[in-house]
């Protein structure tokens, strides 16, 4: 009867070189690891958005009823989305600004679709800490640049939704969207 220490030494395979029997032990342990990982992956992935959430990741908006100077608030991915019909004056105000003096340089052109410069579509989420800026609904203050004003920490956006003053680092985000007809926008 060998002593226990010798036994475990044999089992551990210290006696010169890797033998075939040790290989099986290592293989079994590796398989256990691979199995654990392949089960862990779906268990982690389950926290990602489910199929019903992803399916609602695109929204259609009918903009025909929005008069120039007005905006609507709608919902895209459970967050507010602003669709604003700019007046010619607002467009002119936005285009007058030279991009060099902007914190996040972008032209109105870059932020709208070709030939649809009057339609400004942005997320209603302040790029500072995620509050909903004012200025989309009638009667709300639009801030000193005539666009949007975030009441949380005083970020002011201009008529192209660009950050002009206050702590926000970026312009209001323009989501991916396209005009499916003259009056219908598909967002997402």
């Amino acid at each position: 009867m060998a002593s226990l220490k010798e036994d475990s030494a044999t089992a551990g395979g210290d006696q010169g070189g890797v033998r075939r029997r040790d290989f099986i032990n290592v293989a079994a342990a590796s398989f256990a690891g691979v199995g654990a990982v392949s089960v862990a992956l779906p268990l982690i992935n389950q926290m990602n958005p489910s199929a019903d959430v992803l399916a609602e990741a695109s929204t259609e908006v009918d903009v025909s009823a929005i008069a120039p100077g007005q905006a609507i608030k709608t919902i895209f991915r459970k967050q507010p989305l602003f669709v604003r019909h700019l007046t010619p004056e607002e467009i002119a105000a936005a285009e007058k600004v030279s991009t060099s003096e902007l914190r996040d340089p972008q032209t109105l052109e870059e932020r709208t679709k070709a030939g649809k410069k009057q339609w400004l579509v942005t997320m209603g989420v302040c790029t500072h800490l995620g509050c909903v800026p004012l200025g989309a609904a009638a009667g709300e203050i639009k801030g000193e640049f005539g666009g949007y004003f975030c009441p949380c920490h005083g970020s002011s956006y201009d008529t192209a939704g660009r950050i002009r003053k206050g702590p926000a680092p970026k312009n209001l985000m323009v989501p991916e969207y396209a005009f499916t007809s003259d009056t219908v926008i598909k967002v997402g």
Binding site: A11, R21, I24, N25, A28, G35
Partner: peptide, 15 residues
């Protein structure tokens, strides 16, 4: 995996 486990088991108990 079952086959490998049986192998490892026989292995470890061989002595």
């Amino acid at each position: 995996f079952f086959g490998l486990c049986v192998g490892a088991y026989k292995n470890i108990w061989a002595d």
